[in-house]
Computed example of a mutant assay.
Amino acid sequence: MSVKEYNIKLDALCKTLQLGKMVSEAEPIPGGLLHKMFRVETHSDIFAVKALNPNITSRPDALQNYTRSERFAQSLAVKIPSLPAKEWDGSTLHEIDQQMYQVFDWVDGKSLTSNEISPKHAEMIGGILADIHNNDFESHHLNINHVEVVDWHQYLLIGLEKGTEWTSLLSDYMDELILWNHEAVKASKALSKQQIMSHRDLDPKNVLWRSEFSPIIIDWESAGMINPSLDVIETAVYWATDRGNIDQDRFLAFLDGYKRIRGEINADWENVLSLGFQSKLAWLEYSLKRSLGIECADEAEQKLGTDEVIGTIGELKGYTDRIPELVAWLKS
């Protein structure tokens, strides 16, 4: 297991940034898949504090990526309801005893569950994504992430050696994983010149609603270059999915909200949907690394990796089954 572990000292963070003295013990915020979040109340205010996963911040380009994603969120804050990280001395990243943090204003709001989302909510988010895509953020110098071929057999062999619970499932889907990976690589090459800067993870958990129709977009760390049509489809599916099924009314409402601002979408939908395997396969590989102890901070994160391996394979299968239906809706 990785030696990179959390070293969380919220009292020291509050003192260094002069947030005020904590009035009670920090309250963990559940639901995060990558980092640890806390509600921190001090004598001066209430904050959301993100303790960044040390196994992620130790990557070569991680801190630069965090800085750029927050600059992107800041640049959009005058156009859309965005919650960027707070700055001190020109930086949104704060290190205390080799632990990195981000601090946000606390927002009294909630994320919607899948059965709470209406077509109106989906339409609003479609419009917000269109506004994000209309950005003038300087991104011509950014690298485009190409899809790579993954050695899935390698992870299976390590899993068999360690006796992990997902080995039979991974073995059963090995041929499909190789095929999906190949299709994503092929589509990536075909669509590589059509890229735009975007949030890239605008699913319901990353939108807080302060009232029924008053959203604010959070968690910009995944912001980067993406094919705009892929971003539309992935986000539309996020907001249309309810108990494993895609609600056509919500899906089309999302597209209506987007097209009202950006106009009709002219895309090679077969390649776009093949490229849709990319993010799911990348998350599967990361989850395999966590589950195997290659890249995780503690046993809880390792268990989360195991759960996500099983869940992500199911999502990949479900996505494959839905592609014909999505193509029909998009071309209707």
Rank of each mutant, 00 (worst) to 15 (best):
Y6T: 01
K9E: 10
L10I: 13
L10R: 10
L10H: 06
K15I: 13
G32C: 13
V40Q: 02
E41L: 12
I46Y: 03
A51P: 02
L52C: 07
N53E: 08
P60H: 09
Q64H: 13
Q64F: 11
T67Q: 07
R68K: 13
R68L: 15
E70K: 06
R71Q: 13
R71D: 10
K79I: 15
K86E: 15
K86H: 14
E87T: 08
E95A: 11
Q98S: 14
F104D: 01
G109N: 04
E116K: 04
S118D: 03
I125E: 00
I125S: 04
D131L: 14
I132V: 12
N134R: 10
N135Q: 07
N145V: 15
D151K: 10
W152P: 01
L160P: 00
G163S: 02
W166D: 08
W166V: 01
S168K: 11
L170D: 05
I178F: 06
A187S: 13
K189F: 11
L191K: 04
Q194D: 14
Q195H: 08
M197S: 07
S198I: 06
E212Y: 09
F213V: 07
I217Q: 01
E221P: 07
S222D: 10
D231E: 09
A236Q: 03
T241K: 05
D249V: 09
F251A: 03
L255G: 02
G263D: 06
E264M: 08
I265V: 00
N266E: 11
A267K: 03
A267Q: 01
W269G: 01
N271W: 03
S274G: 02
S274H: 10
G276H: 03
Q278G: 09
W283A: 13
Y286V: 13
S287P: 00
K289C: 10
I294Y: 04
E295S: 15
I310M: 04
T312V: 08
I313S: 00
G314F: 06
G314Q: 06
E315H: 13
E315K: 15
L316V: 11
G318N: 08
R322K: 12
P324C: 10
A328Y: 06
